[in-house]
Amino acid sequence: MEMSLLDTCIDAIRLLFSGNTELWSIIWVSFCVSMTAILISAVPAIFVGFLLAMVDFPGRWMVIALFNALMAIPTVVVGLTLYLLLSRSGPFGELHLLFSQPAMVIGQVLLCFPVLVCMSHAAFQGIDRRAWETARTLGAHCGRAALTIACEARFSLLGAMLAGFSRIISEVGCSMMVGGNILGYTRNIPTAIALETSKGEFSQGVALGLVLLMLALVLNFTLASVRGKGQLI
């Protein structure tokens, strides 16, 4: 019997609060993989963004354009590339990483790195050059001055991390290809939604969708409250 939209939503909410272990293991895998990926990529990506904003070198604009282009690359293409590299006949086949959480983490690092670079680059570009000069003239060495600049750009950098996290927590293509959608191990929220929907089991898909929606709301409200109410132009 086909369920109405309302029935599906009620069933989804009931499922969420029933303590269904399968559902919560999927949520846990999603969080673990995406948090690990964002933590691995944040510092190096912000550093690259800083260098692109502060240091002039030949071909700098090409690097910026490349990262901008990589932001738009479909997740399934990253998944496919990684699949070819990690499959048994691929150059990294001996590492036996395919269909594992580390493979998903690698894929998500590749996906969020360009987002973090581009957004942190934009964040640093928005900082006045005088901030750097003031820090330097008051005695800060380059590293300390860079930290000061990062501190000045903290809200924009938090926004960059949020955007990077949003990109990977909701991606399905790469996780499906290199994770393999193994229940309890590599099945995350987006791959589970895709699977359950294809089976006609909408309740679990909607429940997981609600988790993603709640997560997006919580993260954005947290950022907004840290930043303040926002200034009008």
Binding site: E133, T134, R136, T137, C151
Partner: peptide, 23 residues
């Protein structure tokens, strides 16, 4: 001069026309 800079001198300070204030 400190080891990390061959130009900046610890006894020399420059103040901008419109001073930058940290957040």
């Amino acid at each position: 001069r400190r080891w990390w800079s061959d130009r900046l001198h610890p006894d020399v300070i420059y103040l901008h026309q419109t001073p930058y204030v940290f957040m």
